[in-house]
Simulated scan of single mutants.
Amino acid sequence: MPGPKDLDPSASPRALLGAELRHARTRAGLTQDQLGEALFVSGSYIGQMEAGTRRILPEHAARLDEVLGTGSFFARNCAACHRSRYPDHFAEAAEAEPLTETLKEFEPTLIPGLLQTEPYARAVFRAYRPTAEETAIDELVAARLDRAALLADPTRPLFWVILDEAVLHRRVGGPAVMAGALRHMTGLARRRRIILQLLPFSAGAHASMSGSIKLMTFPDAPPLAYLQGVGSGRLEDDPATVARHQLTFDLLRAAALAPEPSLARIEAVAEDYAHEEQQP
């Protein structure tokens, strides 16, 4: 019997490869947990690979071919899933975003990537890479702005954002850029596309002093948590770990201002920036 054909990389290769994995696992009579044991990963990790929310890594692909008797199918085709516009530490998280049912994000220092304007994103990337050629910055900005296409859907995903007040006062790109960036966020919130809360300085110490949190849920796969540092990132799928980060987000939400006072505060700061820009 001939083996499966190579997948077309233009046709959502991660989703197609995940579907092939589910088919091969079922044909082999294995549960997700049983296959996970053979790969030394959790059953939920297998479920995420099948749903396309996580990549099939090369070392896993070779083992899958061995366990499932698929020749070299997964080893050949997993390479298509590793082509990405995003840095390696962020690629899995970014590529999972369009599949989400809910997104919850806390940012302590900057506007989340999905909500950044072009001038704001350009200033951020230029700060990260002060000597990069302009074409390289252009590519990074384009990739970041393209991610925001998922907000074109009027209802999905539900996107809940909590910003530390420090985000408002970090002058990324100058007064005009900040005014535009803050107005862009509040505009989305006023149109009921996102839920936006501000964690004020007056809240004092809070549950995520050490960094940002991104929580993702999916209609047909276990939830994920993404934690990011400078040039690094970690995608968590362990249920207890994800639940702990969900509790952290809930504590932040409880400490933050309600949505309407949050918008009023952010809009007032945007007006201050706009007036500053108009000063001679």
Rank of each mutant, 00 (worst) to 15 (best):
D6C: 09
D6H: 11
S12M: 14
S12D: 04
L17T: 11
L17E: 13
L35E: 02
G36M: 04
E37N: 10
G43W: 14
Y45F: 13
G52L: 09
L57A: 04
L57F: 02
L64P: 06
L64E: 13
L64S: 07
D65G: 08
G69K: 09
T70G: 01
F74W: 11
A80R: 11
E92Q: 05
A94R: 14
T102I: 10
E107K: 13
L110P: 01
L110V: 04
T117I: 07
E118I: 06
Y120N: 04
A121V: 05
R122K: 01
A123H: 05
V124I: 14
R126A: 14
Y128R: 05
T135D: 14
R144N: 08
A152H: 15
A152W: 13
P154Q: 15
D164T: 06
V167H: 11
V172I: 09
P175Y: 07
T186H: 07
P200K: 04
A205Q: 01
D220C: 07
A221R: 01
D238A: 15
D238R: 14
T241R: 02
V242L: 03
R244Y: 11
H245A: 01
T248E: 10
F249G: 00
F249P: 02
R253D: 00
A254P: 00
E260P: 03
V269S: 14
A270N: 02
H275N: 09
H275I: 09
Q279A: 12
